[in-house]
Computed example of a mutant assay.
Amino acid sequence: MSDDAILIHARIHMLATAEGGRSTPLIGGVPYRPNHHFCDAGDDRMCMGAIDLAEDESLAPGGTIERDILMRIWPELKGSIQPGQEWAIREGAKLVGHGMVIAVLESG
Rank of each mutant, 00 (worst) to 15 (best):
M1Y: 06
M1P: 05
S2N: 08
D3N: 13
I6G: 02
I6H: 02
L7E: 08
I8Y: 01
I8G: 01
A10V: 03
A10Y: 03
A10Q: 01
A10G: 07
A10S: 11
M14F: 08
M14V: 02
L15R: 00
A16W: 00
A16Y: 01
A16M: 08
T17S: 15
T17C: 11
A18H: 09
A18G: 01
A18F: 10
E19D: 11
G20N: 07
G21N: 03
G21A: 07
R22G: 04
S23W: 07
S23H: 11
S23Y: 05
P25R: 05
I27M: 11
I27K: 12
G29K: 06
P31Q: 01
Y32F: 15
R33M: 11
P34T: 08
N35W: 00
N35M: 06
H37Y: 15
F38Y: 13
F38R: 07
C39T: 05
D40M: 06
A41S: 13
G42K: 01
G42M: 02
D43T: 04
D43V: 02
R45A: 04
R45Q: 09
R45D: 06
M46N: 10
M46K: 08
M46T: 09
C47G: 02
M48D: 12
G49C: 02
I51G: 01
I51K: 00
L53C: 10
L53T: 08
A54I: 00
A54P: 00
A54C: 05
E55Q: 10
D56H: 07
E57A: 06
A60W: 06
P61K: 10
G62R: 03
G63R: 06
T64F: 08
T64N: 12
T64W: 10
E66H: 04
R67V: 14
D68S: 10
I69R: 12
I69P: 13
M71E: 10
M71A: 08
M71H: 12
R72P: 00
I73R: 05
W74F: 15
P75K: 14
E76Y: 12
E76Q: 15
E76C: 12
L77T: 13
K78F: 09
G79N: 13
S80C: 11
I81H: 12
P83E: 13
G84T: 13
G84N: 14
Q85I: 15
E86D: 15
W87M: 15
A88M: 12
R90A: 14
G92S: 14
G92N: 15
G92I: 14
A93W: 14
K94R: 15
K94Y: 10
K94N: 14
L95T: 09
V96K: 02
G97E: 10
G97H: 04
H98V: 09
H98D: 10
I102N: 05
L105Q: 14
E106P: 03
S107V: 02
S107L: 02
S107T: 06
S107H: 09
